[in-house]
Amino acid sequence: MTEAIKLTGLSKSFPVGKRLFGPPKAMVHAVEPLDLTVKIGETLGIVGESGCGKSTLAKMLVGLLPPTTGQIEIEGAVLDNADPAIFGKRIQYVFQDPISSLNPRKTIRQIMEVPLRRLHNLDKTARAARIREIFAAVNLREEFLDRYPHEFSGGQAQRIGIARALAAEARILILDEPVSALDVSVQAQVLNLLADLKKEFGLTYLFISHDLAVVEAVSDRVAVLYFGAIVEVGAARDIFANPRHPYTALLAQSAPEVGRPIAAPETAETELPDPMSPPLGCAFNERCAFASDRCRREKPALAADGSGRDFACFNPLAASQEDG
């Protein structure tokens, strides 16, 4: 078994305009059926703009949202529709907003003890020892344990969030925008801590972010999500340098970069499609310079190109020379 996470046909739809009886007026597909695997010890980055379904996907992976269709396999065990408590021992979640993920009326010790008591039935002395161990691992002082969440800065609170996730002893962590609420100087501290922890405990990460540069810096592979579907997956080191899907290229060009002149990368007309009336064919066709008639009729499927890159496009950008 080398797969930490294996998703098969996983999708999520939300009903819109619920009625008391009978079916809802419409369904919005937040995540289209998708297949994805994360290897043990790997960091898979997931990038996409707001509304692309990346948080919905993450919440399904830890059991906070039941999937509409499909199957979730975690470390070889099928876990779709299981209780979050069962997910909890195998896979944990680090939240975007470190402060609001900590109950303001509990001390850090109380927060840290819950997973140890609930998931592992440790007694009091064992819990205290384990908390000491974890706090040492995330460079937090033990005197913090008797304080309340509002006394901490964002960076410290995020370390506490990571410590809580580690306490469950899950080997897979879902990191949902773990540094986007932090200042840059603190962001690097937390990213480095995550890298160290991964090495120390042999963790597998699913790293969700909208910041391409951050994702590229921490990931082995990157999946690009657009409108609820994966449009491209490839090695982090070259997916943004040599994008095959036009959307990946658009993202890479939009990232602000010192020294590059400002140019609107597309015309102002273009926006995300309306989820209530999704376009026929490729969801990106209205924003795409290479869209052909086929793109407007048929939905391209994610397919491998033989060099370790998967993309869903009929008219992909040319692979660069050194990429072969």
Binding site: S153, A188, L191, N192, A213, E216, A217
Partner: peptide, 24 residues
């Protein structure tokens, strides 16, 4: 200078980032 080093830029590949220890 150290703040600039903290910011990852696209195209750098997977790497360890430099951080500024402590808090403002």
């Amino acid at each position: 200078s150290r703040l600039i080093d903290c910011v990852p830029t696209l195209g750098g590949g997977q790497r360890k980032l430099s951080a500024i220890p402590g808090l403002p």
